[in-house]
Design a protein around this nucleic acid. Structure first.
Length: 219
DNA sequence: AACAACACCAACCGCCGAGGG
DNA sequence: GCCCTCGGCGGTTGGTGTTGT
């Protein structure tokens, strides 16, 4: 972490933001709107580069951001969407209103990635063969130490029906509680009508169909 | 109480694609 | 077509708080 008040070679301030800097940035955006980040320093005198301003706004100052721990529903969405898309955090974040890609990324790293690494060593022979057969095979294994014994969600690209096959959730009060068989919850949790977002991402365009078509199978 | 290990998360870095000149 | 700038994204870093010994 850069020391408070440090400046880089180009004169941009780095390190933690002060309340006064936040206020200046919010004031600028309320006046000019989002975007034109490189103009922030010119208009406000803020010694922050455009990237830093954008990041601060998107991850911390933007209205509607949720603070605090992710809910079990949100955890579940992250797990499934990561199984679908991998580390496409910004895409995943679009389905979690109020959560940022940075937050999701951090959450994933601290809660799941380590366990994924650990579980790599205990893949079954069949699982290993599947991986070897298809380099694009995405595998996710995670364990929530509080109440999930083990979770595994797999998505195979060769599956023409785009079926997702989450395994388990036994003895869990997370998924078994929040993901009903008929997927009625998805309409509430997911903004499946986000056509604007979907139009920019060919994979995302399938998600609504994905879950609504009943291609969701629990073991 | 002191120290170590771990978890969390704000912020930075580097890369890439889009758009304009 | 090339170059430059800007915005967006994913990966990484490191300070701080929490928990364990």
């Amino acid at each position: 972490m850069v020391q408070m008040g440090a400046y880089d070679q180009e004169g941009w301030k780095k390190g933690p933001w002060t309340p006064e800097e936040d206020r200046m940035l919010v004031e600028y955006i309320s006046q000019y709107g989002e975007g034109r980040w490189s103009s922030v320093s010119k208009c406000t005198g803020l010694k922050r580069n455009g990237k830093s301003c954008r990041l601060r706004w998107v991850n911390y100052l933007r209205p509607g951001l949720k603070k605090g721990h992710l809910t079990p529903q949100e955890e579940g969405i992250i797990i499934e969407l990561h199984a679908l898309w991998g580390n496409r955090w910004s895409t995943i974040a679009r389905y979690l209103p109020g959560r940022t890609d940075n937050e999701i990324k951090n959450y994933w790293r601290t809660h799941f990635k380590k366990r994924k690494q650990e579980n790599k060593t205990i893949l079954t022979q069949q699982q290993q063969e599947e991986i070897n057969q298809n380099k694009n095979f995405n595998k996710l294994t995670s364990t929530d130490e509080n109440n999930i014994n083990q979770e595994t969600a797999t998505v195979h690209p060769s599956n023409e029906n785009h079926q997702i096959v989450p395994t388990i959730y036994q003895d869990s009060d997370l998924w078994s509680d929040f993901v009903p068989m008929d997927c009625y919850l998805w309409d509430g949790l997911w903004n499946l009508d986000d056509q604007d977002g979907c139009s920019k991402d060919e994979n995302r365009a399938n998600v609504g169909d994905y879950f609504q078509s009943g291609g969701y199978i629990f073991h």
